[in-house]
Amino acid sequence: MAAEEGLIKPRGSSKAGSTGTPSLRGGPSVTTASAVVGSDGDDVSLLIVVLDCAAGAWVPRQSNNHDIGELGTVLDQLCVFLNAFLALNHDNMLALIGAGATTSDFLYPRPAPPDQHLARSTAYQQFFQTNNTLMTGIKNLMDREAANMGNDVDTILHCNLASALSKALCYANRLTKDQPVRTHLLVVSASHDTPAHYVALMNTIFSAQKADIPIDVCKLYGDSVFLQQAAHLTGGVYLGLDDPMGLIQHLMFTFLPPPTVRKHLALPTATRVDFRAACFCHQQIVSEGFVCSVCLSVYCKWRPVCATCKTKFPFPKSTMGGGGVGLAADGGATGAMV
């Protein structure tokens, strides 16, 4: 735990590491109080969905024998889910951010092209426009990605979640500045963890924690260490799925309730959270490593100078055997990875 909390230290204030958690505990109650001023009926909430748009992650899996691409299946169900969210309250706000391998982009809201105003009359206008904008947005994003990456686009299994999440948080901050709106974030991801983005991702997670915005995670095909931590630290729900066929039911059950209703509902809780961190030097997920006792940076190998805070460490007296012993700095304090 100590290692994770410390990660914001190099950038944030020097006190963040130690006082971060207690001050956050006080946070939610204050925000809730101001948000629930109105009656039960006019509880407006903002949902920001971050969708993984890394093409490779969505390549149809062997196990499925239907023709349609996995992304199509997910998108169909996601659209129904988004409509359901908008149906909850007339004033509910929605934002969608696509996270590609290199870039991330707002898929909704976007100014609609003028020709799109011809609406299909069977659909509720708001639903129709959201879904339409979403679909064109994803297509544009993926086309652009494909143009950037060339032919090997299908091999990309990583997406730039950190960038998408920070966009989401900035957007939430802007919208909720002058109106009491509860925000929750949903990450729908299929790609693997990107250890290179570890620091950036953790920083966004801590910002979300500070802003009292729960990050829900719907992870398809295999678990993600970082996203587990994201959900755990922000009080969101982590759900790992292997097959997107029944996705809609999971979305409706777990991710639809806004934060104000969640306290009444029984939602899945993570039994085990993988707390491993990625080292700062080689961006690999490590179970045991070295922690700078000043700034709590994590390294997989011993080094004489901390790359983050430039603290000089004395050479260890014994040879470095197993990991788990922290670097001694000046005073000789030691720390261990969880």
């Binding site: 009359s121 069977t122 659909a123 509720y124």
Partner: peptide
């Protein structure tokens, strides 16, 4: 209503 498959004039 959620999937937009209703009768042609359900939302005008």
């Amino acid at each position: 209503a959620l999937t937009g498959r209703g009768p042609a004039t359900s939302f005008g």
